[in-house]
């Protein structure tokens, strides 16, 4: 079923059914999107559930001016950003470094099956500022168009290109120092 058909079903009054179809269609895509930021399967699982609840409560406000796909990614990305901020605030209270906590999660994750270079790459991503982290993942891994990232993050294409450039160079430098 297409996004358009799901929304038509929703508007016709079969809201729960439309939502179930939306969950079916987007569970995997959104999971892999948030997994890079969550650093553990358990956190990604909790986040994904929160995202779908948020999607359900926000559906009445979806005006279909943007594509369903970008709208969902925007909600997911905002939830991810809030999750990262929550961790930073908690780290301020507990005097622990948020990025070190995330790097530790990567080391302890039983579902991480990459090699050392990939491990260091994903750790280096956690050391980037929030927005650079988001842009880097969208662009480097998903190869998403800047125009789509711009719609999702509500940031200009120029600013995104600059953020990606900084993030890419920082990570490249870090990896070159280690390998």
């Amino acid at each position: 079923m297409t996004d358009k058909e799901i929304m038509e079903l929703y508007r016709s009054g079969s809201r729960e059914k439309a939502f179930a179809l939306l969950v079916d269609a987007y569970t995997e895509r959104l999971y892999w999107h948030i997994r890079r930021f969550a650093c553990s399967h358990d956190d990604a699982n909790d986040l994904l559930q929160d995202i779908f609840i948020k999607v359900w409560t926000s559906l009445p406000t979806f005006r279909e001016e943007s594509q369903l796909f970008t709208w969902l990614y925007r909600i997911a990305t905002n939830q991810v950003l809030n999750h990262l901020r929550r961790q930073r605030f908690r780290s301020l209270v507990s005097f622990e470094s948020a990025s070190l906590m995330l790097e530790k999660k990567i080391d302890e994750d039983p579902h991480f099956n990459g090699d050392e270079l990939q491990r260091e790459l994903h750790k280096a991503i956690q050391r980037l500022p929030e927005k650079q982290r988001i842009v880097f993942c969208f662009r480097y891994f998903d190869e998403m168009k800047y125009e789509d990232i711009s719609e999702i993050t509500d940031t200009s294409v120029g600013a995104l290109k600059a953020s990606y450039h900084h993030a890419y160079n920082k990570i490249k430098d870090e990896l070159q120092k280690k390998f």
Partner: peptide, 27 residues
């Protein structure tokens, strides 16, 4: 190879997530 996903999920995770979501009481 750096762009590939270095993560796995528990067996049957996506199906069980969908089933779990269908049981979550929607506000």
């Amino acid at each position: 190879e750096l762009k590939s996903r270095p993560y796995s999920v528990p067996d049957g995770y996506f199906d069980s997530f969908r089933a779990e979501m269908s049981r979550v009481p929607l506000p």
